[in-house]
Simulated assay, not measured.
Amino acid sequence: MSVIYLKACGFVDHPQFHDGATRRLAGTMLWFSQVEIYYKDAEGAFHRNLINITEFEQYIKILPAELQPKAKVQMAHICTPRPPIKMGDRIINLDQPRVMGILNMTPDSFSDGGAVDDDIGLALQAAVDMTANGAAIIDVGGESTRPNAKLLWEGDEIKRVQPIIEKLSATGAAISIDSRKSAVMQAALGAGARMINDISALLYDDNSIDIARHNDVPVVLMHAPSQSSNPHKNDGYDNVLFDVFDWLEKRVDEVIAAGVPRERICIDPGLGFGKSLSDNLTIINNLALFHAIGCPILFGASRKRMIGALSNEAAADNRLGGSIYLAMKAVEQGAHILRVHDVAETIQSIHVWRGLRDAALTARAE
């Protein structure tokens, strides 16, 4: 079967000096001058080419006929600005990177289990601090999904998340519920959450997609190799980058067909879920590929095991440097939302990056 993938590359600091030779990436503050094209023809031969933007229209004319429409659609997705995320009365623009702060109401999460546990006052203060430091969204979770974590009964999960969401909602914060269970989603939305972040991409629970559609809220569809009680179960990949891309593209199409519009869908490649260190690094190095799906990209590498694996097995609470670097690697490929534990430090990094971009985009020719 013939397949094709387009990835923006050749990023340019000063697009204002190169009229017609660059395009803007998905409405972000990045402009690119080249596109890397990977395709497999009907005979199974694999091709990989690097094309200047100025040559793209001519190049696609020599592609196999069955691939030309898909190439045009992917390029349109890469260049189309992502609409703002609407979370109730809150509007979150995606023209620059936004931060989602993690609030785990769990005793056993891999990096901060028990940090707030069931202390509502402590949890509320942590969330308020994150919003004060610049978090656009607070992602509240009540079940650990680390490897070998036990499945939690939905009633217990609701008891963990509902009270803090009610308190936090009263502050006006934009709140996401991190859950794969429809009953938890509904309880959280009733308490004031206005986004669903589901590691199973609305597949674990058959009722989840109805909850998302009927409540008219944005959803994050994450890739995991299994939507069973163990999201890390993996039978292997042929090519992790293209396998994850294909899975997310197909799932986005299915969710749209089920009645959730594209403008309410974000995608997450699911770093660390059933993926080796090599798999994770491949996805991060090629994150820009996922713009071709046409949805905002959420990136979550904060404190993950890969950082420890690359830094002398640093403990989860000692991975700030690696977390910041990976976040900014994602920003420099156009990630729209960063899901992080360390909000203040990530926001500071984004501010410095934004200063550099502003200076580059307003520079004048000598």
Rank of each mutant, 00 (worst) to 15 (best):
I78N: 09
C79P: 13
C79G: 15
T80W: 14
T80Q: 15
T80S: 14
T80V: 12
T80N: 13
P81Q: 00
R82A: 15
R82Y: 15
R82E: 14
P83G: 09
P83N: 03
P84I: 02
P84N: 06
I85S: 11
K86I: 15
K86P: 00
K86D: 13
K86F: 13
M87D: 07
M87Y: 12
M87T: 02
M87H: 05
G88W: 09
D89G: 03
D89I: 00
D89C: 06
R90N: 11
R90M: 12
R90E: 10
I91C: 12
I91W: 14
I91K: 15
I91Y: 14
I92Y: 08
I92C: 06
I92S: 11
I92E: 01
N93T: 14
N93C: 15
N93F: 15
L94K: 06
L94W: 08
D95A: 04
D95F: 11
D95N: 15
Q96I: 02
Q96D: 02
Q96K: 11
P97L: 00
P97D: 03
P97G: 04
P97T: 01
P97I: 01
R98C: 04
R98Q: 09
R98H: 04
R98T: 11
R98I: 10
M100V: 01
M100Q: 05
M100D: 02
G101D: 08
G101S: 08
I102V: 01
I102M: 02
I102Q: 01
L103C: 04
L103A: 06
L103N: 00
L103P: 04
M105I: 04
T106P: 00
T106I: 00
T106W: 02
P107T: 04
P107V: 03
D108C: 05
D108E: 10
S109R: 04
S109Q: 03
S109M: 01
S109A: 06
F110N: 02
F110E: 05
F110M: 07
S111D: 00
S111I: 05
S111G: 08
S111A: 07
S111L: 03
D112R: 08
D112V: 11
G113Y: 01
G114A: 04
G114M: 04
G114E: 03
G114T: 03
G114P: 05
G114R: 03
V116G: 03
V116P: 00
V116S: 00
D117P: 04
D118P: 07
D118N: 12
D119G: 08
D119K: 01
I120S: 10
I120D: 05
G121S: 10
G121F: 02
G121E: 09
G121K: 13
L122F: 12
L122C: 08
L122K: 15
L122M: 14
A123H: 10
A123D: 11
A123S: 09
A123I: 10
A123F: 07
L124W: 02
L124P: 05
L124H: 11
L124F: 06
L124M: 12
Q125V: 06
Q125H: 11
Q125A: 12
Q125Y: 11
A126S: 13
A126Q: 12
A126C: 06
A127M: 10
A127K: 10
V128K: 12
V128D: 09
V128C: 12
V128S: 13
V128Q: 14
V128L: 13
